Amino acid sequence: MAKQYEAVTVYAPASMGNVSVGFDLLGAALAPVDGSLLGDRVSVAPGEQGLSLHCCGPYVDVLPAKLEDNIVLRCAEVFIEKLGLEVPGLKLVLEKNLPIGSGLGSSASSVVAALGALNAYFGEPMSQDDLLLLMGELEGMISGSVHYDNVAPSYLGGMQLMLAQRAQPLPSFDNWYWVVAYPGITLSTAKMRALMPQQVDLSIALTFGQQLATFIDASHRQDEAGALAVLKDVVAEPYRAPHIPGYLAARQHLQALGCAAVGISGSGPTLFAVARTRDEADAAAAYLQDHYLLNERGLVRVCRLAQNGIEVSKGEV
Score class of each variant (00 low, 15 high):
Ala76Glu: 04
Met162Phe: 04
Leu170Arg: 05
Glu316Ala: 13
Arg41Val: 04
Ala256Thr: 12
Val72Tyr: 03
Cys259Gln: 11
Gly140Ile: 10
Asp61Val: 06
Asp69Leu: 15
Thr277Trp: 00
Ser106Cys: 08
Leu131Asp: 10
Asp201Thr: 08
Cys259Gly: 11
Pro197Val: 09
Met126His: 06
Asp149Ile: 07
Val10Ser: 06
Gln49Pro: 00
Ala7Val: 10
Asn97Lys: 07
Val111Lys: 03
Ala113Lys: 03
Glu86Gln: 15
Leu305Asp: 06
Val179Lys: 08
Gly57Val: 01
Leu38Gly: 02
Pro197His: 12
Val44Glu: 02
Val151Arg: 04
Val44Trp: 06
Gln289Gly: 06
Ser109Gly: 11
Ile142Thr: 14
Asn119Met: 12
Asp61Pro: 00
Glu6Leu: 13
Lys3Asn: 14
Leu51Thr: 06
Ser15Val: 06
Asp130Glu: 15
Pro242Phe: 08
Glu311Phe: 08
Ile264Glu: 06
Ala108Gln: 05
Cys303Ile: 00
Asp290Arg: 15
Cys56His: 01
Leu37Arg: 14
Gly184Asp: 04
Gly17Met: 07
Ala108Leu: 04
Gly209Phe: 09
Leu94Gly: 02
Glu6Lys: 14
Arg41Met: 14
Leu202Thr: 14
Asp69His: 15
Leu299Val: 01
Gln210Asp: 09
Pro242Lys: 05
Ser127Cys: 09
Glu139His: 11
Glu316Tyr: 03
Gly27Tyr: 10
Asn18Val: 06
Glu224Tyr: 02
Leu299Arg: 03
Leu51Ser: 05
Arg74His: 11
Arg221Ala: 12
Phe215Ala: 15
Ala285Tyr: 08
Gly258Phe: 09
Val274Cys: 12
Phe208Cys: 12
Glu137Val: 12
Glu77Trp: 09
Val179Pro: 07
Phe79Trp: 12
Lys66Val: 11
Ile216Pro: 02
Gly22Arg: 13
Leu299Lys: 00
Met135Ile: 13
Pro197Gln: 11
Thr9Met: 11
Ala113Pro: 12
Ala249Leu: 14
Ala286Met: 05
Gln165Phe: 07
Ser188Gly: 09
Ser20Ala: 14
Ala108Gly: 14
Gln168Ser: 12
